[in-house]
Design a protein around this nucleic acid. Sequence first.
DNA 1: TCATAAGTTCGTATGTTGCGAACTATGGGA
DNA 2: TCCCATAGTTCGCAACATACGAACTTATGA
Lengths: 122, 122
Amino acid sequence: MRPLTHPSIDDITVEGILHALSDPVRAAIYAQLACADAANSCSAFLQMEDRSIPKSTLSQHFRALREAGLIRSERRGVEMLNSTRCEEIAQRFPGLLQAIMQSYKTQLGARKPAARRRAKAG
Amino acid sequence: MRPLTHPSIDDITVEGILHALSDPVRAAIYAQLACADAANSCSAFLQMEDRSIPKSTLSQHFRALREAGLIRSERRGVEMLNSTRCEEIAQRFPGLLQAIMQSYKTQLGARKPAARRRAKAG
DNA sequence: TCATAAGTTCGTATGTTGCGAACTATGGGA
DNA sequence: TCCCATAGTTCGCAACATACGAACTTATGA
């Protein structure tokens, strides 16, 4: 098992960030980490919005976020604590993460009621 | 040949925008369209930053940008005129495109001189 | 009608992603 | 110390996405 790697702040790229956050699941994970007071473990996300995500898939998503430089992960006992690197990134790319997260929030709020009802029922 | 399709403003998604702009070539195309006074044809981008891009690949990139809702394309005689839909998008997702474009610009400016020299030479 | 120019579509090789199964850590008892 | 449970990772494969040359379509003009 290779050790966890985190890119240095200078190696973080805009295209990497955009690609990582262009997946709705990863964006949701990132959003939740950004809102959380304390660091979250991976398994906190096995169940997301009424959808269960396989462990292996989740692991890949966390790796993608980590390698894009969006989060920092450290082993703490048997689990992994994840936190965002938003301060660092905000310094290098001011406003980027904020705009992306705000846009996702807007999009979520703009979904038509009928569509939301259908999604809940289905 | 199917006619050009443009999503309505309500069908434009954040993930679609991020994915489309997570490709540096597409981001460069979009940036140039955003800066241009008049609409640009596709073939204006066959040569980008000392790199030539195959016509078919370029066509796919334009389709990706179009289907993400980032640009509008219309036939004008034998060629295609492309322009951004940034006003519409800015209304729905304020600040998003601006932040992304500004970040790319920052990234470009932050490349170390040595790396830039090497890139130019190679 | 032929030639040319601008884009699109197709076929294929190459990459990326999602997920179950098997594996690797770490911690807590007997 | 050995065994088990828990938390993540890696592997292998199927499904999907992407890049690019070749062949095609569409418009213009001689």
